[in-house]
Amino acid sequence: MQAAPKVQLDFVDALRGIAIIGVLISHAQRNVEIYQAMGREALMSPWLSRYAAQGARGVQLFFVVSALTLFLSARKRSAEATPWLNFYLRRFFRIAPMFYLAFAVYCLAPAVLKGHDVPPPGTVLGTLSFTNGWNPTWLLGANDVVPGGWSIGVEMSFYIVFPLVFLALHNFPRTLAALVLLLVVDVVTWTPLLGHPPIADAQLWQRFVFIWLPNQLPIFLFGIGAYFVLFEQAGRLTSFFRNGDRLHNGCWFMLAVAILMIAPQWIDDPRAVFLYGAAFAILALSLYRQSYRWLVNAPLRHIGKISFSGYLTHFAMLQVARKVLGKLHADTHLSPDIYFLATVLLALGGTVLVSTVTYRFVEVPGQALGKRIILALEARRASPASAGSVSQ
């Protein structure tokens, strides 16, 4: 299998930065309007509330970018002696150290220091094993174990099936066919699945059907399709996005932006998430061809680099922002819109600071440990071979 060439991926970090900022914005909106961060019922301007809430689609942007980079990495490392064992080791040590630290901070520490209740064992086990997305009862209290843990469970579930996906989708036509098939199945089965919930809590069942891997898998496939367009061969699409003129590329960029601007205002159906997936794939293709400096820049790339830590720490930073604004009596002096913006700025600043530290001292050492384990296993496999050659 031919290895993929080394490519510039600054746009990938920028997209991750956009994704985590979007997620933080959506949670800031929920803090104001749902969790009454201002100490009372408060509604933001309808247009601002609607767009802010759709920042949650940053999770789907993470999925698109993840699938694209996973395929690129798997192609590059396909010549390794045990590529899939190494893949799982890299993925586990990429995710687990920071995730388990978040579990200690958000779940264990409050239980030990403040006597808070610990979620049921099934919920804790399902979350820590990254299988909470396969059982709706585990999902119910997953955010009490690690806030936002559902999306990481979906990501890890995709890692489980990734070798099969990688081997099955070895070109763009297959990826496109699989994407269309999955979209049809998900769209058609949505209503019947919601109409016959197997559990008593219909609302929980609806949430579960939305987030579980079969419903999110098309989002990953949009990222895989983008990979083939950029780094393999996808006919005229590949030629255009590698060599096309900037004017036409700008039109595609504007199409992606238009979808992202129009969808929140006109579409309420949860199945619109697939439209976001398409828009994010187009956005990735456009930024690869033309990295706009106002979008692909050093600050945003840094936020993208620390975005996994940021995803786990921004929940705490939102609470810090709430306390700071409370001390300043901002809840009584600011309008809900301005309070929301102040929350976003304070929480984002805190998230960047804290996540830069956790990235350096938790994520990087965790990834380094995974690499050392891979090298140790390779050395063990090489030793018997060397001994055999010497004895001959």
Rank of each mutant, 00 (worst) to 15 (best):
R380Q: 15
L328P: 00
W47G: 06
I21P: 00
A42H: 05
A387M: 13
T332S: 12
H302W: 15
Y100S: 04
S129H: 02
P97G: 02
A330I: 11
A168R: 14
G304V: 08
S307T: 06
A142R: 08
L128K: 07
A104E: 04
F274N: 10
R381F: 10
D201K: 03
L85K: 15
A109H: 02
M98T: 14
Y359V: 02
I224Y: 00
I95K: 10
R289A: 14
I219H: 01
Q265A: 14
L221R: 02
V165D: 01
L15A: 06
K6Q: 12
W138R: 02
D186L: 11
D245K: 02
V145Q: 06
N215T: 15
Q265H: 07
S78P: 08
Q367V: 11
G195T: 10
I282M: 13
L176I: 13
G349D: 10
Q392E: 12
I303S: 06
E155Y: 03
V362I: 14
L312R: 06
I199W: 01
V146D: 09
K371D: 12
I20L: 11
R91V: 09
W134D: 06
V7N: 10
I306G: 06
R381S: 14
G244E: 09
P173H: 00
V146I: 15
G304L: 11
P136N: 02
G370P: 00
I306D: 07
R360T: 13
V229F: 02
V154S: 11
F240W: 13
M38C: 03
L287H: 01
S26W: 09
F130M: 11
Y339R: 01
L377V: 09
T238H: 11
Q367K: 10
L341K: 03
S73Y: 07
